[in-house]
């Protein structure tokens, strides 16, 4: 059997690390009966497109962020709420536990088998104007966000001017000043040499950005029980490799940014921001209910 794993970043990335670990593990377990091709750089399409591809069975597997997943499984929108998780430890523990499993189970009716939670890491804010220490500093700032209602609502609530923009225009838009800032996990800053176009980074960690190891249900249903077990085990290896890569990036990231002359703000008014983004929580609960949200909060008490 041959499995294609689609990822949008290059092979040398946190997703690539996961995909490579999956490939090594399953080829070992199956003694070469199952082979894996890693299709990196988005050659099989963007993330939303790859999700559709898995639904119809044209792509077997993917490691993907949750950016586009909410359109398919709205229950995952809860993870887009700002300041939801306190730390890497609590995010990973909760997603690996029953709450995370409950969300994974929602994928199957959509034709997707969710094998587990990988991650991009916490998202931080960069900008070219001035250090962001509290909500006042972000007022009116044009911050590029993903096309995601919750993120946009949160930045609006905090007083910024969220500007959804396709990623290939972002770096030049930052350089030309079309927008003032953007927000992403550390690995994206480093991969895109963000210091060429930005001066300030605030380690806001405002959103924990998870990722998913997914398989097409069409592919899954065609596997034997042995093969399914191998896939599950290889997915675990993929998630471990991905998290190790992200942890390492987070460690060296701050140092790398400073080496390139970036002004890094670690000490910021977290409580002030948490206060400021409350309207986004209210809007969310009204629209999607607060059941899972309360579970996640309770688990961190």
């Amino acid at each position: 059997k041959e499995l294609n794993i689609a990822i949008t970043p290059p092979e040398e990335s946190h997703y690539g690390a996961g995909a490579k670990a999956f490939k090594a593990k399953i080829e070992e377990l199956s003694k070469g009966d199952v082979t894996v091709n890693i299709k990196a750089n988005g050659v099989l399409g963007g993330e939303r497109e790859v999700l559709e591809g898995m639904q119809i069975g044209s792509i077997e597997m993917a490691v993907t962020s949750t950016g586009a997943v909410g359109g398919f499984v709205p229950d995952t929108y809860v993870l887009d709420l700002p300041f939801l998780f306190k730390s890497y430890d609590s995010a990973r523990t909760i997603l690996d536990g029953p709450i995370g499993q409950g969300l994974l189970d929602k994928f199957e009716p959509q034709g997707l088998v969710a094998l587990g939670w990988a991650e991009n890491g916490f998202r931080h804010i960069t900008n070219s104007k001035h250090p962001i220490k509290g909500p006042d500093d972000i007022k009116g700032m044009k911050i590029r966000t993903m096309e995601n209602d919750i993120h946009i609502a949160a930045f609006n609530a905090a007083g910024a001017a969220p500007t959804p923009m396709s990623w290939n225009e972002v770096i030049t838009a930052l350089q030309q000043g079309t927008i003032d800032g953007q927000e992403n996990p550390m690995s994206i800053f480093i991969a895109n040499k963000i210091w060429d176009v930005q001066k300030y980074v605030t380690l806001s960690g405002h959103v924990y950005s998870p990722a998913l190891v997914l398989m097409s249900k069409v592919t899954w249903d065609g596997l034997s029980d042995d093969e399914k077990a191998w896939v599950r085990e290889a997915a675990k290896a993929a998630i471990q490799a991905n998290r190790d890569y992200v942890s390492k990036n987070e460690e060296i990231g701050i140092k790398t940014l400073r080496e390139h002359g970036i002004d890094v703000t670690e000490d910021f008014d977290r409580d002030g921001f948490v206060q400021a983004v409350q309207p986004a929580y209210e809007a969310f609960s009204e629209k999607y209910g607060s059941e899972v949200l309360d579970q996640i909060r309770d688990a961190q008490k």
Binding site: E52, Q55, A68, G70, G71, F72, P74, N148, I152, P164
Partner: peptide, 18 residues
């Protein structure tokens, strides 16, 4: 068939079906 297949998918930013 495809238009029916994506009926459960929402367009980003707009609360309408794909």
């Amino acid at each position: 068939m495809m238009a029916m297949r994506v009926s459960g998918q929402k367009v980003a930013m707009l609360q309408i079906s794909m």
